[in-house]
């Protein structure tokens, strides 16, 4: 048995967990090495001394002090909830309020009967639709531009005339003598 093998097996020897063959080999090593035997004996004494170390106990005030500390711990959550709004911290409450306001604004804009659709959205969708049609068709020429301009002008003038014709002010005009 080598020295390092011997050192590895000391605890197993002291706790009696070696096999019979290992124990015989260990014993023969001890017989031939008085220093090794001295080390094993000392270690055995140390383990006994460690086992017999006087037991330390908590002080008489331990439970009382613990009770005081637990009371203090119980108070902490109460203080923290006082600084919250409906269970949210100030930061989260602000964020949540912002989100709710934004949601309400978008909802009103989407479902308001006087404004059927969001103008911004319409414009965006129209632009995308135009882009799609442009990409699929030929590039615009000067003739196309003139034609489009004429169409737009005629449409807007027609629309204006239609609006004037539609308006009936007869019931709103009152003569002074009436």
């Amino acid at each position: 048995m080598e020295r390092y093998q011997f050192e590895d097996l000391i605890s197993d020897y002291l706790e009696n967990t070696l096999t019979i063959a290992q124990r015989k080999s260990f014993d023969s090593y001890l017989e031939s090495n008085p220093k090794a035997k001295q080390l094993v004996d000392n270690m055995k004494n140390n383990i006994n001394e460690l086992n017999e170390l006087p037991k330390v106990k908590t002080s008489a005030a331990f439970m009382k002090n613990l009770q005081g500390r637990l009371s203090a711990e119980r108070r902490i959550p109460v203080e923290s909830t006082a600084k919250s709004f409906l269970g949210f911290t100030p930061l989260y409450a602000t964020v949540m309020t912002g989100l709710v306001v934004a949601f309400l604004f978008v909802s009103i804009e989407l479902f308001n009967p006087e404004k059927p659709n969001l103008p911004i959205l319409n414009k965006t969708f129209a632009t995308h639709a135009d882009e799609g049609s442009i990409s699929n068709k030929h590039e615009p020429t000067e003739n196309d531009d003139n034609q489009n301009l004429a169409d737009v002008e005629s449409d807007s003038l027609d629309q204006l005339d239609d609006d004037i014709k539609k308006k009936d002010y007869s019931k709103q005009i009152h003569l002074v003598n009436d």
């Binding site: 050192e7 590895d8 000391i10 605890s11 000392n42 270690m43 383990i47």
Partner: peptide, 13 residues
Amino acid sequence: VKSRINRARIQLQ
């Protein structure tokens, strides 16, 4: 753990 306990006992000595 076994190895540590063994080495700890040797070092304690």
